[in-house]
Write a protein that binds this DNA or RNA. Structure first.
Lengths: 99, 99
DNA sequence: TTCATATGTGAACATATCTTCATATATTTA
DNA sequence: TAAATATATGAAGATATGTTCACATATGAA
């Protein structure tokens, strides 16, 4: 069972992912879009925060490739970027439940 | 494949874990102590930061039960709190490698 | 076109956070 | 005892961050 040695660059890279998920609103945004695309408006309603704030957070999540956007008419639907992100979050929530 | 619905409280709880691991120095501290206890002094040397800073970060990690401390003489050895934390970080670093 | 709706963006502010420095406490050595 | 080492802690400052507000852009409806 060898230890994990992270080069400073890798630590920074992984820490950036953790950092983005370390804000409750952002975390809930990702979790709300794990299985199906959801519009900005619906996300704002679900979380009970303004569309503007949702948009700000989504921009960061999209820039980090944790989420991706798809435009349909005048709405934009967001979802988790890939199966990788989905597994990652399922692992973490599983760990949370075990405690 | 049902979605993950997080109550606000759960989101905050999980986000706190992510938030703590979202700082590069703290993330490296945890990763350095996954398999064996390491003293504050050695951790500071490994990461190239001051013992004071290490101590500040370890205090947060310990308070969140991500790490635990064991005193031996005038040194204090820290390690990941349990197998749970170890698996969690291994999962995440595995995901990082896959990309 | 005009109006309403959906989303994005920049500025500004309050707050949080990381780091450094000085200092305190505890333990071992001389 | 005194000195040296290891760790912890509080204050202070620079920076980062989350949120709100105002406004811009884009698309569809009337």
């Amino acid at each position: 069972m060898p230890g994990i040695h992270l080069e400073p660059d890798q630590a920074t890279e992984l820490a950036e992912v953790f950092h983005l998920l370390g804000e409750p609103n952002r975390l809930r945004l990702v979790c709300s879009c794990l299985d199906e695309p959801v519009s900005v408006h619906d996300l704002a309603e679900q979380l009970g925060i303004s569309s503007s704030l949702v948009s700000h957070h989504l921009r960061l999540l999209k820039a980090a490739r944790l989420m991706r956007a798809e435009k349909r008419g005048r709405q934009v639907f967001y979802q988790a970027a890939d199966e990788h992100v989905r597994r990652m979050l399922r692992d973490m929530t599983d760990h949370l439940d075990e405690e």
